[in-house]
Design a protein around this nucleic acid. Sequence first.
DNA 1: AATGGAACCAACCGCCCACGA
DNA 2: GTCGTGGGCGGTTGGTTCCAT
Length: 309
Amino acid sequence: MMNRGSGIAGMRKGPWTPEEDTILLEHVRNNGARNWSLISFLGLLPRTGKSCRLRWVNKLRPGLKRGRKFTPEEEQRIIQLQSQFGNKWATIAKYFTGRTDNDVKNFWSIHRKRLARAQNGERIPLLGISNQIVNLETKGGTIASLQELHASEEEAQGSNSNGNSSGATSSDIVEPQPDVNPIWSNPNPDPFPQPDSFDSIFDLSPLPESIHILQPALGSVNLTQDQSGQSTQVIDGVTIVGSTELGPAQYTDPNNQQCKSEPRCMDMGFNTCIFRDTQPLFSPQPSEFDDLSDILDPFEQPSFNLFPP
DNA sequence: AATGGAACCAACCGCCCACGA
DNA sequence: GTCGTGGGCGGTTGGTTCCAT
C-alpha cells in the first residue's frame, strides 16, 4: 500500500507483512495485549509500540468483522450515537460487536462527505441508508423516518442488495460494556478465544454490575427474533427479551411467570425487557426522567445500576 | 474496455491523559 | 508537585477497490 517513509530511525512504517503479524501475535500470546514498546525494545519488530498496538486493535484482535460493511441498522445506530456522544468514536464503537473506532470513524467520514455534497446541491446516488439520511437532513426531515425509508429503498432495489448489507445483522449491535471485556480488563487475558465465541459481546463478558440498556424502537433490536417478532437471549442467568413492536407487550420470564411491560416505556419506544431473578427492568432514556423510581415502579428497583455514572 | 470519481480501508500523526518514579 | 513514558484517542492521509459512464 502506501509508504510513509522511515519515520523514527530504524523503525519500519507502512503495510504490515504476514511475518510481522505472526511475530506480533506471538508477543500478545506470551505477554498479553500490552507492553507494546517491548516489541521494538527486544528487537522483535522494527515497529514502534504505537504501531504495534494499532495493528493489534484494528486488525489482529479476535472477533473483528473484517470485510463486512456496516448494515443500514448499524449506520443508523452510528448516526444516533454520534448525535449523542459527538466524535467519541471509541465510545460509539463499544456499542458494536467486532467494530473498531477506526471503522466507525471511517464510516462517519464518508457520511460527512456525502452530507456536504448533498448540501451543495449535488445529486448523489441512492446506495445505502446513509444516503437517505443525507436526503432527510437536506430536506429538513428527521432521522425518525429512516426505517420507513429503508424499507422503501429495499423495495425499490429488490433483493439485489450487494451493497451495505454484506454480512452483519442487527444482532451485531450491542450495548456498550467498556469495562467488562476480558480482552481489556483481565490482566492475563486469553487473546486467542475461538472466533465463534465472539458472535456477541456478551459471549466475551460476564454480565456487568452496571448495564445501560437503550433500545429505541427505531433502532435495531439486539436479538434475533422469532416469527412472532419477539426474541429471547439468556446470558449468565439473565433473560433479555426484545420486540420490535411498539405498545404494551407481555413477556415470559425464565420461570414462566408472566411479566407485563411498562406501557410508558413501550409508548416511548423502548422495547427491551431484562429479567434478573424474574424482576423486569426497563430502559428509559436517562435524560427523559428525573426520577428512575417513577419508571421502575411498580417493579422493584434493579439489583444493578441501569445507568453507569 | 477504459477511465475518472467515489467509497473503502489501513495506518500514521499529534495531542492528551494516566501513572509511576 | 514535576517529569517522563506508555497507551488511548481523534484527525488525517493516501493507497486500493468499486462502480458508473
